[in-house]
Amino acid sequence: MQKSLNIDAHKCTGCLQCELACSYEKEGVFNPSRSRIKVFTFHDLGRFSPYTCTQCSEAWCLHACPVEAIVDNQVIGAKEVLNDVCVGCKVCTIACPFGTINYNTDTGKVAKCDLCDGDPACAKACPTAAITYVDAEQTGLSKMQKYAQLNLNGGE
């Protein structure tokens, strides 16, 4: 079963544990600026929202790459960057409609979420379950359940 990251922004407190976990997993340091997942603060609304790659099936980044440095890991459904192939041309960063693949000036390569080999560090670190790793075909399950419950009460 493939899984997806499922983000419930309502539960996010903006603590950045996900960014710390991601940067530690991928770079070996605690460094939010190197995280592949970002938490955005909407101050006036009092809201926080984590955002990262959605692992598109027909991934724009993958198709745009001129050197085939982005590959589809079909087991876990992640689009992964092959560091030794990437030439740092940044075309993928332009192609991605969501901005979730970014250039790293230290390495001269791009970096994106690769679901940590099927065990994403961000989801494990999230203290409020705002980020979970769930059945890729059932990401709407908890929402469905919520509305099903509303239905029990006659939609009230």
Binding site: T13, G14, C15, L16, Q17, L20, L45, G46, R47, F48
Partner: peptide, 8 residues
């Protein structure tokens, strides 16, 4: 409106 965390 909500509760909020400081860094980490």
């Amino acid at each position: 409106t909500t509760n909020a965390a400081c860094f980490g």
